[in-house]
């Protein structure tokens, strides 16, 4: 009976194309909550991707180690604090550690690999990832740690907002994450466009040789970007650690920064944040309203699928530079 078959199909189509939207509009407060959650995770993805973008922009290195740098920075902060050192001093010391790390990476790894193909540098950062995992676990131990969010003055608690006949809850920490992300993006944007070093960075990104010929030191620039990426990693680590614990599991989540990068374009700072938000919103909404249809747990791959679909139409990402092939 074809009519019966149609009936089944209609039900299926209904559950894909109609029911989720009915759900969304019948409970707008819940939708708003979902959007807020998506916004928050999007901000964190964006922060992660920001670290990648900084390094890629200035040196063309696809820094796979950014994820572990986040974990490493957060662990260092917690570790230093556990010696009884006040939180803000610990924060300053962690920044120093990230600086030393940047200097070491430049001296030991990058300087030796100048002029190598991209894939070699990419592999070197994977090697760096392994090294930092081993080193971090050796020094700080493998078990999850609590981020010292209260000591750093990040407010705890939440504010609820009565709207659409329901309640939407905003955690202070999530709001703080959004504010910090905004501050970071604006200050980095300012740094890149207005300061002397920022201009040098852009010059290096544009053309290594030309930058060298006008007297810009490549090595110095690399240390600076890796240091900047380290600070972004520290901020990401603090915010992420405040939401969950600090552990090496974060490093897997860091792979999520890849679709974000692809969406935003590898070289765009606002693109990283906007890409993060698209991924954050997209995967939360899909998981809540459609995920149940195919068994749930879609968050592990949906971000990649968004990026994949996007790439097919715009291979350079939203804000990336146009890819021009020459022979």
């Amino acid at each position: 009976m074809p009519i019966l078959a149609w009936g089944i199909d209609m039900e299926f189509l209904n559950s894909i194309f109609v029911a989720p939207f009915v759900d969304m509009f019948s409970a707008p407060d819940f939708l708003l909550q979902v959007l807020w959650e998506g916004f928050v995770s999007g901000i964190l993805y964006g922060l992660l991707a920001l670290g990648f973008v900084l390094i890629f922009k200035a040196s063309g290195v696809f820094n796979f180690a950014q994820g572990i740098m986040v974990v490493f920075a957060a662990l260092t902060l917690v570790g230093i604090h556990s010696f009884g050192i006040p939180a803000y001093v610990a924060l300053a010391l962690t920044i120093v550690v990230m600086g030393v790390l940047a200097l070491t990476i430049e001296r030991v790894v990058l300087r030796k690999l100048v002029n190598q193909p991209d894939i070699i540098l990419f592999m070197a950062t994977i090697g760096l990832t392994y090294f930092l995992i081993g080193f971090g676990e050796l020094v700080f131990g493998g078990e999850p740690k609590k981020m010292i969010a209260d000591e750093l003055g990040i407010p705890n608690g939440s504010v609820s907002w009565d709207i659409f006949g329901g309640v939407v809850i905003f955690e202070y920490r999530d709001i703080a994450a959004a504010v910090i992300a905004a501050v970071l993006v604006f200050s980095l944007g300012f740094f890149f466009s207005k300061t002397r070093i920022g201009r040098a960075l852009r010059a290096v990104a544009d053309d290594h040789q030309a930058a060298l010929s006008v007297g810009i030191s490549l090595n110095q620039i690399w240390v600076i970007v890796w240091f900047a990426a380290g600070i972004v990693a520290l901020a990401t680590g603090i915010m992420w650690g405040a939401k969950s614990d600090v552990s090496f599991a974060l490093q897997v989540i860091a792979l999520k920064a890849l679709p974000v990068l692809v969406l935003g374009g590898f070289t765009s700072i606002p693109g990283a944040i906007i890409g993060g938000l698209i991924i954050g919103f997209g995967e939360k909404i899909f998981e809540i309203y459609w995920g149940g249809l195919i068994g749930g747990g879609t968050e592990s791959w949906f971000a990649f699928v968004i990026a994949l679909v996007f790439l097919l139409f715009r291979p350079q990402g939203l804000f990336g530079e146009k890819i021009i092939d020459r022979i």
Binding site: A124, L128, G134, L138
Partner: peptide, 19 residues
């Protein structure tokens, strides 16, 4: 942990010595 460090360091070392 030391294993991880050694492997990471060796990967970097080999890439530097012979990409």
């Amino acid at each position: 942990h030391i294993n991880f460090m050694i492997i990471g360091a060796l990967i970097i070392f080999f890439l530097i010595v012979e990409p």
